[in-house]
């Protein structure tokens, strides 16, 4: 592995600064798994890299930002408490393999099939609100999830979701017909009991599918893994 080590020796600094392009970072991480010297150096240099953000003059965020964030957190905390108090009945869900790169007619067909499944399973309309609720199709054993769509966003409430792989989080994507999946800022990890909530804010107009997959911690701009939860939205 010596030749390999020499090839990577200089990459540790760029790695801890987050300056390796994605493909190179992935290859370097493979090397790290086998090279104790590089691991030790990366840990050492990480201390310096982690001090960098503390060097600037500290600036206070505007109070309105806290109000916005806390409003969202309180809302999700309530939803979560509600979901815990009323556990849904266990249901066997159809499992489906999904590919991001299937040709469009196949996607349309699959969406139609999924939609049929959702309709057969019963589309629930949120009590009194203008929101629509959908069951999400899951490829994960046991996991279940529901999607609430409102005018200005969507909320996913999931149960029995397994922990994502190390270094990964779940990420929500939205997809409009004939378009590639669009990233959202909704990244989440389930709590210890497997429950999770995630909310997507923004215009849901024209969104046909909401998908959840696993991505590296900061999220990605294009999907790098297969979706595990899928909801097809009735128009």
């Amino acid at each position: 592995m010596n030749g390999d080590h020499e090839r990577w020796e200089d990459a540790t600094g760029a790695y801890v600064l987050g300056a390796l392009p994605d493909d190179e970072r992935a290859a370097f991480e493979e090397h790290l798994a086998t090279c104790a010297a590089c691991r030790a150096e990366a840990e050492e240099l990480r201390v310096a890299a982690q001090a960098l953000p503390l060097s600037g003059p500290p600036v206070l965020p505007p109070p309105a930002l806290k109000a916005r964030i806390m409003a969202e957190v309180e809302r999700e905390a309530e939803l979560l408490a509600g979901a815990r108090d009323t556990p849904g009945p266990e249901r066997e869900r159809p499992r489906r393999r999904w590919s991001w790169r299937v040709p469009m007619p196949a996607v349309a067909l699959a969406c139609a099939a999924l939609l049929a499944g959702v309709v057969a399973g019963g589309v629930l309309f949120g009590g009194g609100s203008d929101g629509r609720r959908y069951d999400m199709d899951s490829t994960l054993p046991q996991a279940s999830a529901e999607l609430d769509v409102t005018e200005d966003g969507a909320i996913i409430v999931a149960n029995k979701l397994p922990m994502p792989e190390a270094g990964k989080v779940y990420m929500v994507w939205i997809q409009r017909p004939g378009r590639a999946p669009e990233p959202t800022s909704a990244l989440f990890t389930p709590r210890r009991d497997g429950s999770a909530t995630a909310s997507v804010t923004g215009d849901m107009e024209g969104v046909a599918t909401v998908l959840v997959n696993q991505e590296p911690l900061g999220g990605s701009t294009t999907p790098t893994s297969q979706p595990v939860l899928v909801a097809s939205l009735a128009s």
Binding site: R68, I69, E72, M163, S185, L187, F188, R191, A196
Partner: peptide, 18 residues
């Protein structure tokens, strides 16, 4: 900067177990 901070803290709230 506000959007980034909001995304990061909501990520913290939802990924705390991690």
């Amino acid at each position: 900067a506000e959007d980034v901070t909001q995304e990061a803290f909501l990520n913290l709230w939802r990924s705390g177990a991690h």
